[in-house]
Design a protein around this nucleic acid. Structure first.
Length: 367
DNA sequence: AATACGTGGGG
DNA sequence: TCCCCAAGTAT
């Protein structure tokens, strides 16, 4: 059994963290408010995403969708366009859907109980605790990446955090200062983000230094223990930029799953022993039921997702005939190079658009 | 319980 | 180039 801080130590840990936070805590945009809507948006954006990346998206989002009613009545495409580039697009779809639930079920007023907040799509235990403690100062704990690292070091956890989830949650709950839940949680995250960092933690500046088991055993560089990871599979994808006069064919991916609801250039996986040209011809016939002629290579893009890597091999193609059918997507459109930026695209596809604009600065493509 | 789900930055 | 991972959730 791992030794945890004793109850008598808890008060001291709470006081020292709060004192540190009040002096050294970060000044972040979402800390200027107690508006549960704004705090909710920030919490969703911050899932698996660094603060530095989130800040400009957060500021822009609140200008476009200043309140839950505005978000609820917006088009999903407009919501995805605001989210474009942030990744994990289910977060945007869930935010939109949850906004509609809030308007319908709560007249737009954010609920204040854990059960009600957890029932909203995209909100799990950490996000719920983060919102309710930050917005209403409710005494609910969190366990995000920062807190996992801080607590793993505090008790010198001898296994990867994912294998000790229950224990870390218990510790987060036991430590929470019930008189200052908002500041305590924010302080715990700030400690992880600025002092108890993954690499080269500055233990000399840490308010918990003398209580930290990792520091006492000089294990802070080894903890938390790494999670085991599987090697990433690699796929080669043939992609078609189908040109018909001034227009290019794009399709909207199905609403669920990878990059759901975003637009893309059509294509698919290159099978073993298949040439890129044959793959593109086959995919376009299978998914759109039109005839094309595969032309020159435009660009090749390597891109890494969380669970696999892809190489997109993009060819310019000439439209020959047939009425495009949405057999594997939700919608098809012919757009000009000028119109294309209105549509939300995944990051790898924006590189294709950039290559097209470079090839045809006047917007006229010749294939 | 294990896997799907984006992107950018650091070493 | 490659690996790791960052304010996690859903299934």
């Amino acid at each position: 059994m791992i030794s945890s801080p004793e109850i008598s130590k808890i008060n001291s840990l709470q006081r020292s963290l709060l004192a540190w936070y009040w002096q050294q805590g970060r000044d972040l945009p979402w800390r200027k408010t107690h508006d549960p809507y704004a705090i909710w948006v920030s919490e969703i954006m911050l899932q698996q995403t660094q603060v530095k990346t989130v800040i400009p998206y957060y500021e822009r989002w609140l200008k476009t969708f200043p309140d839950v009613e505005t978000l609820a009545t917006a088009e999903l495409q407009a919501v995805l366009k605001q989210w474009e580039g942030l990744g994990y697009y289910a977060r945007a779809r869930n935010l939109h859907r949850a906004a509609q639930m809030l308007v319908q079920q709560y007249q737009g007023k954010f609920p204040e109980t854990l059960a009600e907040v957890l029932a909203l799509p995209g909100i799990g235990r950490t996000t719920a605790g983060g919102i309710l403690s930050a917005a209403f100062d409710r005494p609910l704990s969190i366990l995000d990446g920062n807190v996992k690292r801080v607590l793993s070091r505090l008790i010198a956890l001898p296994v990867p955090p994912s294998q000790a989830s229950d224990r870390l949650w218990e510790l987060s709950e036991r430590l929470l200062d019930l008189t200052h839940p908002r500041d305590f949680n924010q302080g715990l995250m700030d400690l992880g983000a600025t002092v108890c960092t993954r690499q080269q933690p500055t233990c000399l500046l840490c308010p918990w230094q003398t209580d930290c088991q990792a520091y006492r055993q000089n294990l802070q560089a080894q903890l938390p223990m790494r999670e085991t990871t599987a090697p990433l599979p690699h796929k080669r994808i043939g992609v078609a930029v189908i040109v018909n006069g001034p227009q290019i064919l794009i399709d909207r991916r199905r609403a669920e799953g990878l990059l759901g609801g975003l637009w893309e250039f059509p294509g698919g996986k290159i099978e073993a022993g298949e040439t890129v040209e044959a793959c593109i011809l086959r995919e376009i016939r299978e998914e759109l039921a039109i005839d094309i002629e595969v032309g020159a290579s435009l660009i090749t893009i390597d891109h890494a997702y969380t669970h696999f890597r892809v190489t997109l091999i993009v060819h310019l193609c000439r439209y020959l005939g047939g009425d495009p059918q949405p057999l594997a997507c939700d919608e098809i459109r012919w757009v000009t190079l000028d119109e294309i930026e209105q549509y939300p695209f995944p990051k790898a596809n924006t590189k294709i658009i950039a290559a097209l604009k470079e090839l045809a600065p006047d917007g006229i493509l010749t294939v």
